[in-house]
Structure formats: C-alpha cells, structure tokens
Simulated scan of single mutants.
Amino acid sequence: MSSKSDKKYQSLIERGSNRSTPVSRALFVLFRALDLPIQYAILSSRSLGAPLVNALGGAHLVPSGRPVYLFGTSIGLSPQRAILFGMAVGSFVKQSHWVTSISQEPLSPTSSGLVGTVNTIYNSLNTLFFTNAATSVLSYASVGWDETRLPVQTVVGVAMYIFGMGLEWVSEMQRLKFKKDPKHKGQLYTGGLFGLARHINYGGYVLWRAGFAVAAAGWVWGTIVGGWLVYDFTKRAIPELDVYCGKRYPGQWAQYKNSVRSKLLPFIL
C-alpha cells in the first residue's frame, strides 16, 4: 500500500502503540459526561432546546404525562423521555468503559474532544427532533401525544439499541480477552462474534445509533442515521483498518477477509 493511501486513511487513534495517554482518556470521559446534563436539559420541562426549536420555525412539545419514578423519587421525565435519556446514559457508560478498560491504543486530546463532541451531536439531534412537534415520533405514532404510552417505533428502537450495544460491547470484550493472553501475541483475533463479521463492533454501533434515532423521531430519521454510519464506516474507518491490519497481519488478514466476507453485520453488510 502506498504512502499516499496511508495518509488518506489516517486514523483518529494511534494504532499499533501502547503509549499511555491518561489525560486524553480522562478528557474523553469528561466530554462524554458533559453530554448527560445537556440531554436532560433538552428533554426536561425547562427545555434547553425550546429556543432553538422555536427559532427554526418548529413547535416545541411541552412534556406531558406522569413522570417516571426511580427509587421512589421522580426523575422529572415522562416514560418516553426517560427512555431517550437512558439511551444517552447507556452510550456514556459503554464508551467510558471502552476508553478506560478496553482500548489499548493512545488517544490525542483532539481525538477525545472530537469523538465526544460528535456523539453529543448525535444524541442532541435525537432529543431535539423528539421535542419538535413536526419530527417527534409522537407526531405520527399510534399513541398520539401520550408520552406515557410507547409507540411501536420506540419499542423497535429500544430493541435495536440493546441488541446493537450488546454486539459492540461483547465483541470488544471477547477480543480484549484474546489479546491479553501472552500466547496470542502477534495473532489476529478471528473468533467469537468477529467470526461472523470482520468489524462487527462497528455494526453494533450502527444498530444502536439507528435504534436511538428510531425511538426519538421514527423510521425515516433512523434510516438516515444508520445509512450515514454505514457509509462512513465503509468509506473511512474500514479502509483505514484494512491498511493497518494488512501491514500488521499480512497473511492472516488476507485469509480472514477471504473466509469472513461480511464487514459490519453477518449476511447483511
């Protein structure tokens, strides 16, 4: 592979190095943690997003319905909004665990800030679309405007979210366990869920991100989010990994690509 191709597929992560970057990892967790009060503020009665929705010509939805109680205390969100906020919390927990316990490669402060910001943008678009009358899943769902009932879009979105999060998390933990065993040094991991698709952790990310979008704003928005992520992974992240893995595991990687044809999800992508 030429140096021109190497430059084209530069990664946000410094692959092949175990250099310690605790400050960048702490920044990553901080950026992801800052997302939670933002999402809560958008979804709560004192909506952070109301001025933006109104300024863009939309109609902001005032929270309705009895709020969810957790351990005997109201969290101030309807069931529908509580689910969306829970998805944001889940993304924070998963990605914080990834950066502190799973990823072995260095991160730069710039990469930490960029990845954290991008994920906050995804989450904020979902919650803003939910609170805008024209784009909210409640605008055409069978439950009308009742935020205490869950439309089929939310149920499907939650299922996609849970399944996708499981795929991403479990596959990465399986690979980490393999890499930590000294007898596997220099070997490519092709077992577990990675025996079904070469980048199944990316496929899991696509699923839970699309599920979050479906639960917030329905099928069209979920398709847009999922389609964009598939495009981004297949045109940017996967080619970059092909360059890296082709160099680090020349024979193994070629054999793996030949035996496992699926890139993101088995029998689909």
Rank of each mutant, 00 (worst) to 15 (best):
I75G: 09
L77E: 14
Q80H: 15
Q80R: 15
Q80W: 13
R81C: 13
A82P: 07
I83V: 15
I83Y: 13
L84N: 13
F85Q: 05
F85C: 02
G86I: 09
M87Y: 10
M87A: 00
A88V: 06
G90E: 01
S91C: 06
V93A: 02
K94F: 09
K94Y: 09
K94Q: 04
Q95E: 02
S96V: 04
H97W: 05
W98F: 10
V99C: 00
V99R: 05
S101D: 11
I102P: 03
Q104D: 00
E105N: 01
L107K: 12
P109G: 04
T110Y: 07
S111H: 03
S112Q: 10
G113V: 09
V115I: 11
N119S: 10
T120E: 02
T120S: 03
Y122L: 03
N123K: 07
S124P: 11
L125H: 02
N126F: 10
F129H: 06
T131R: 13
N132F: 03
A133T: 10
A134C: 04
T135P: 07
S136I: 14
S142R: 01
V143N: 09
V143S: 12
D146E: 03
E147L: 12
E147R: 13
T148I: 02
T148S: 05
V156A: 14
V158A: 06
V158W: 01
A159Y: 02
F163R: 01
G164V: 01
G166S: 02
G166M: 03
E168M: 07
W169H: 08
S171P: 04
E172V: 04
E172F: 03
M173C: 01
Q174Y: 09
R175L: 05
L176K: 09
K177G: 10
K177A: 11
K183C: 05
K183M: 13
H184Y: 03
K185Y: 10
G186I: 03
G186Q: 03
Q187Y: 05
L188Y: 08
T190V: 07
T190I: 14
T190E: 13
F194W: 13
G195K: 12
G195R: 12
L196D: 06
L196N: 08
A197F: 06
A197L: 00
A197S: 10
I200C: 00
G203L: 11
G204E: 11
G204R: 11
L207T: 04
W208F: 15
A213F: 03
V214G: 08
A215R: 07
A215V: 13
